[in-house]
Design a protein around this nucleic acid. Sequence first.
DNA 1: TAGATTGTTAATCGATTAACAATC
DNA 2: TAGATTGTTAATCGATTAACAATC
Lengths: 233, 233
Amino acid sequence: MDSEKRISPAVINRLPRYYRYLGDLLESDITRISSKELSAKMNITASQIRQDLNNFGGFGQQGYGYNVEYLYNEIKKILGLDRLYNMIVVGGGNIGQALVNYTNFEKRGFVIKAVFDTNPRLIGMTIRGIEVYDVDQMEEYIKNHNVDVAILTLPRSKAAKVANDLAKWGVKGMWNFSHVDLQVPDDVLVENVHLTDSLMTLIYKINEMYSEENELNQLANGLPIKPIIDLED
Amino acid sequence: MDSEKRISPAVINRLPRYYRYLGDLLESDITRISSKELSAKMNITASQIRQDLNNFGGFGQQGYGYNVEYLYNEIKKILGLDRLYNMIVVGGGNIGQALVNYTNFEKRGFVIKAVFDTNPRLIGMTIRGIEVYDVDQMEEYIKNHNVDVAILTLPRSKAAKVANDLAKWGVKGMWNFSHVDLQVPDDVLVENVHLTDSLMTLIYKINEMYSEENELNQLANGLPIKPIIDLED
DNA sequence: TAGATTGTTAATCGATTAACAATC
DNA sequence: TAGATTGTTAATCGATTAACAATC
């Protein structure tokens, strides 16, 4: 991972998408692809694809394009997916349990090793063979095991304190499903999954589209406008 | 929702965050706030806050700042959160069930009305009182009920066909947890929650940070480098 | 070799930040 | 009124797209 020039967040966010498309091509036994072809599939410009990739090196060949398998493996290395990562889940509620049961993470090398909760009814249980511990045991666990990422699936009210503790105990990555923005030291990385926020932007876009259609309808033929939402169901 | 000038996606994505911070201020009985104070809390520039808000109108007052409750309610309206939205879950697996059980959506006006699956063991059951139907009944259900958003929590392989059907039957919003990019008509809005992608970018950033620390360490004192990851756990 | 397609520089576009006159 | 802070225009910064020489 050369870190000579800073890679822009926009590029980093596109990397998993490239990785996914190349994986699909690989499964379809396609051996080579040009930026133009990939551009058509992914709905981004060929120029952007070439720019993005060239942040990390020249993976293609003039007149040929890119070798799918080679590029796939290079992106895999860039993303750091050629290793295993140990994760813990903090908060064994609905979402925490769902993530533990979601076996696809493991296939990618993301291994959930333990779950922590405060609920006595959960502590001592196992989920998909993974033990649920008392949060009080978390400090000891982290000091005796290598924890790369903590998955935070606990209530808003508790998230800040736990994130603070985890940072203190040396956890460097937090995947935050709690609906708060965490305040952590600069050397701790947080990736937020704010589901409610995501849903709200979807709702905004639906309404925006609808009100535009409205205007178009009105302009076009003055038809009465059917409401998109019916409060009485 | 005036749609005179197009609002940039960056602004739309920040709206739920403003809404959340204003809600917190409201709960703390804070009645007014300046862009400068909010800037400090949210870690964005005061300039950006004022620019963002002025896309939708002049909600503040010179010399005073913004009235928290008023601004909160304005953003609520902008996001369209002054109504109820009916949702269905397609795919009653881990994540689908977790979302059904996550009661916070309902508090915001997002109501899950039905779940659809192909698994005979699930069909006929209820989750938090919400019925699980056979996917075969989905067309009829959608034609007889108002469905604003379909939550797609089904396997990659099935997602494309289902999204296609849903679009055909008139569903305008899809909240997509399946790990594929859906191809839908222009008047259908898709918001993706690609969990694996999100985790991958976190991993990238951790590794990037680590390799930088490496270089700093090396430059600073030439200390031996402790690997961040231990494959043997 | 001729054709295709990359890598990369330059041009454009959009988003963020700075600055300040307007005004409460 | 004087001080504070907005709304908004202008300047800067960054990201995307276009263009093309290099080269396989």
